[in-house]
Amino acid sequence: MFTSDFSAGELQPELKQVFYHWRNAAEDGEFPRLTQFELPNARPAPNVLSVFEIERTQTGAAADFKALYVRNKIINTLGNKYVGTRLSEHPGFGPGSMIWSCFHEVASTSRPLLAALPYVGPLPEYRSSSEIYLPLRGEGVSVDYVLVGVVLLEQEYSHKAH
């Protein structure tokens, strides 16, 4: 399903562009800040990107993930409005779901994640997705956001996964 142990060579071309941009934006070993991506005009691959804010409990544990930015291409493949909503508000996306596990892993470990998930949207031609989850800082030093790149695939996608 997902792994933090991946190489850029395993990524779909659009996700590879996003990963290199994210990696090159890192400063002094720190993750890039959300503001470095200049959304909605992000380069590269803006049509595959979304950004979620990590909502944390008082102890710092991830409690939910709020969609701040979702490109139209992604919205059209899901069939629902996501901006301004939390993952837990959408059936099949809350705690215990595969997508929740991916977000939770990034929020807990602050490590990039490559995921292969089954596609569950309204478009019958797609069977799976290849997704990259990248931690982003806010104004401080902690990871406050997750940048997600999603590429839909007509075939099953697999890679080394946990």
Rank of each mutant, 00 (worst) to 15 (best):
E53K: 15
F37L: 14
T3E: 07
G138I: 12
T109W: 08
E131R: 05
Y119E: 00
W22D: 04
V83P: 01
P124Q: 04
S4H: 06
Q17S: 15
S101A: 15
D64C: 10
P118M: 08
S7G: 11
G138L: 12
G149H: 03
S88R: 13
P112V: 13
I54H: 14
Y126T: 07
F37V: 08
V146F: 00
M1A: 04
K81E: 14
S129D: 02
H90T: 14
R43L: 10
R43V: 05
F103D: 00
V48A: 00
D144N: 13
A67H: 15
A45E: 00
P44E: 05
G92P: 11
L152W: 14
G60I: 09
S129G: 02
M1L: 02
Y69W: 09
Q36F: 09
G138W: 12
E156P: 02
S128A: 07
L49V: 04
S101Q: 15
E10R: 07
H159T: 03
E27D: 12
Y69T: 09
A116D: 03
H159P: 07
L113P: 04
A8T: 12
L113S: 04
F103W: 01
P95H: 12
G138T: 13
V146T: 01
R33N: 00
G96C: 11
S130A: 13
Y126N: 03
L117E: 01
N24C: 11
E105I: 00
V151G: 06
G79E: 03
R23M: 14
E14G: 11
D28W: 10
L39Q: 06
N72E: 14
I74A: 08
S97P: 15
S110W: 05
R137F: 04
E27N: 13
S128G: 06
S4W: 01
Y69M: 12
N47D: 15
I74D: 02
V106Y: 01
F31W: 06
G79W: 05
V48S: 01
L11S: 00
R71P: 00
N47R: 15
G96M: 09
E139D: 07
R71I: 00
V18E: 06
L87A: 15
T109Y: 05
G29T: 14
S128Y: 02
N41V: 01
G96N: 12
V151C: 13
H159W: 02
C102F: 09
L11E: 03
K66S: 10
L11Y: 03
E10G: 08
K81P: 14
Q155V: 03
V51W: 02
T109D: 04
I75D: 05
L134K: 05
A42E: 00
A67W: 15
M98F: 05
S158P: 01
W100D: 15
L39C: 06
T85L: 06
K160M: 10
L39A: 11
E38V: 02
E27L: 09
P46V: 07
L147C: 07
V70R: 08
F6S: 00
H21G: 11
S101L: 13
M1P: 01
V106M: 06
N72M: 11
Y157M: 13
A63P: 07
S128E: 00
T59Y: 10
